[in-house]
Amino acid sequence: MSNTRIDRRFAAVRAEGRPALVTFFTAGDPDEATTLSILKALPGAGADVIELGMPFSDPMADGPAIQAAGLRALKGGQTMAKTLEIVRLFRQADDETPIVLMGYYNPIYAHGPEAFVAEAKEAGVDGLIIVDLPPEADDELCIPALKAGLNFIRLATPTTDDRRLPTVLANTSGFVYYVSINGITGSAAPDNSRVAEAVARIKRHTDLPVAVGFGVRTAEQAAAIGANADGVVVGSAIVQAIATSLDEGGKATEGTVSAVVALVSQLAEGVRAARRLSAA
């Protein structure tokens, strides 16, 4: 069992008897300085784990909100090096909050997988979620990442049946990200009872924490989903809050960071309510 910031954070949250709040937003949306300000504000607002999206020109698993965020970031000149630099700056003041980089494989492949995992580790990254790398391709990035001391978090989905789950879980570490619906990010809300069943099914195969995402937007949903999971992931709603706060030219405003903080604070209330719900 690894002992990373992610492992420690899930253990701490479990000790509090509540699910973790995992927040996603895109690095460089709409600029580097705003991203760093949001990162710094998130732990105080109640985010337990931060997923930072690495923008990609062709985000095939993402819905319109995260597609648009990626395009804003790329238009603003965001690169892999800048994303790692943001993490490095964040780590100077926060040595506890886990950071997971989430994205697609090609920018990493272009950079060189071995160099990337070394630089990510050095910058203070704790884990990776790479959407288009199934376990069949573990030798490409997953194994080098694990060797470098990073967690490699895998997505499990409604189509991942019991026969396939062991393959998916084999090299997974940190936590399992259960994608609650067949679909893209920002889709309709998942059905709670089916999610509870799925989480229970995954837990029969692993001791890792299971976080649930895709379609979770409100504190109420976070509370309901969190009652049956070790973590709740919210992405599109946060990205949407950033989009709404921008000016007509797509630039950040004074309201950008506070819009994210306000939403995340509500979501944090939600996951804390989950404890009360499940205890009741």
Partner: peptide, 20 residues
């Protein structure tokens, strides 16, 4: 058998699609 032509090809898709 893994769908490779030399280093090319393969199956780089999201997990939802993998079983399919």
């Amino acid at each position: 058998d893994r769908g490779h032509f030399g280093i090319f090809g393969g199956r780089y898709v999201a997990e939802t699609l993998m079983p399919l």
